[in-house]
């Protein structure tokens, strides 16, 4: 069996989040070294606070200050901290019920080893030196055997409150295009375009996916198509895409390669953009630095008759 390709794929985006009144007060409070909870209809204090009562579903806005000292309610040791975690040395993930709160907050607990952590141990917040109004304003928790701290009676009103945060997300994958597409990509390096034929409906898929989506059976028979083909339809792109080094306007076309039963997509060059038409006969233009054809250009043949490609539109 031929080699199946693999490559890392990182999906990463800095999502933004509007906070609304309760999260705004909570995060602004952390900036000022004040921890705020919210009082529910049955009198419990939830930390971190939420906007809606989990029991009655009513809106809750009664902010209550709690203290930066508390008790570990449960924990798990993290042997190998990963990128973006609160500490870069091994630490405990701990649920901490702050004094005055009825629920526990998840954060890192800095301790020498798992033998130094136990449920019921007393801890306090270690504040970050630079605070911006984010959960990371709590650098971590640390063991504490002193007195309970006293709340200052803060009501949750702040100058210049934080109203939004950036919540970056990142997922790291190992991506494999699978057997069929690996073979397709390998053939491209020889400047050949190779699809696969469905054993049931006989349609030729380019690029191949390894199965026919209509018949639900595996495809295996390799079929070289093109290199010439017909423009079935197209659009003229007038807006410049980010990270794409193509001058506008350019033509983005669906191209049915000779012998293929569905169109693939490509750019048309070698002809003024406003002279591209449905039925135009084209061929690929390869460049040294790209796996795929850089673009397709007119072959000079007469246009294909509409009847010959209308089923491929």
């Amino acid at each position: 069996m031929p080699e199946v390709l693999k490559a890392p794929l990182t999906v990463e985006f800095p999502f933004t989040r509007s906070l609304g009144p309760v999260q705004s007060a909570f995060l602004t409070g952390l900036r000022e070294r004040v921890v705020l909870g919210v009082r529910t209809g049955d009198g419990r204090i939830l930390v971190p606070p939420v906007e809606y009562d989990p029991v009655t579903a009513e809106e809750i806005r009664d902010l209550v200050e709690v203290t930066p000292t508390g008790t570990v309610t449960t924990w798990a040791w993290n042997h190998a901290p990963r990128r973006g975690q609160p500490l870069d040395t091994p630490f405990a993930w701990a649920l901490v019920r702050l004094d005055g709160a009825d629920t526990a907050l998840l954060h890192a607990l800095d301790a020498p080893g798992p033998g130094d952590v136990h449920t019921g141990m007393r801890v306090r917040i270690r504040w970050a030196e630079q605070r911006t109004g984010a959960i990371t304003d709590i650098a971590c928790f640390e063991p504490y055997d002193g007195e309970r701290a006293q709340p200052t009676g803060h009501l949750g009103q702040f100058e210049e409150p934080i109203t939004g945060i950036v919540a970056p997300a990142r997922l790291d994958y190992t991506y494999s295009p699978g057997r069929a597409q690996s073979a397709y990509i390998k053939a491209l390096s020889d400047r050949r375009i190779v699809g696969e034929r469905c054993p049931s409906c006989r349609k030729v898929y380019v690029p191949p996916r390894g199965a026919c989506p209509t018949c639900g059976v595996a495809t295996g028979e390799q079929v070289e198509v093109g290199p010439r083909g017909t423009v079935t339809t197209f659009c003229i792109v007038n807006i410049k895409a980010k990270n794409l080094d193509i001058e506008v306007p350019y033509v983005y076309a669906h191209i049915a390669l000779d012998g293929a039963d569905l169109a693939l997509h490509g750019r048309i060059g070698g002809i003024p953009y406003d002279q591209v038409r449905m039925g135009l006969r084209v061929e690929p233009v390869w460049t040294e630095d790209s796996r795929y054809p850089d673009h397709y250009r007119p072959t000079g043949e007469p246009d294909a008759d509409y009847e010959t490609y209308k089923e491929l539109l």
Binding site: P8, T233, C235, V237, A241, L244, A253, H254
Partner: peptide, 19 residues
Amino acid sequence: PFQQPLLAGAGGFFAPHVR
């Protein structure tokens, strides 16, 4: 990985079908 970047955005996906 291994795929050509999408050339034209959402409108570029639908515009050829309109044509």
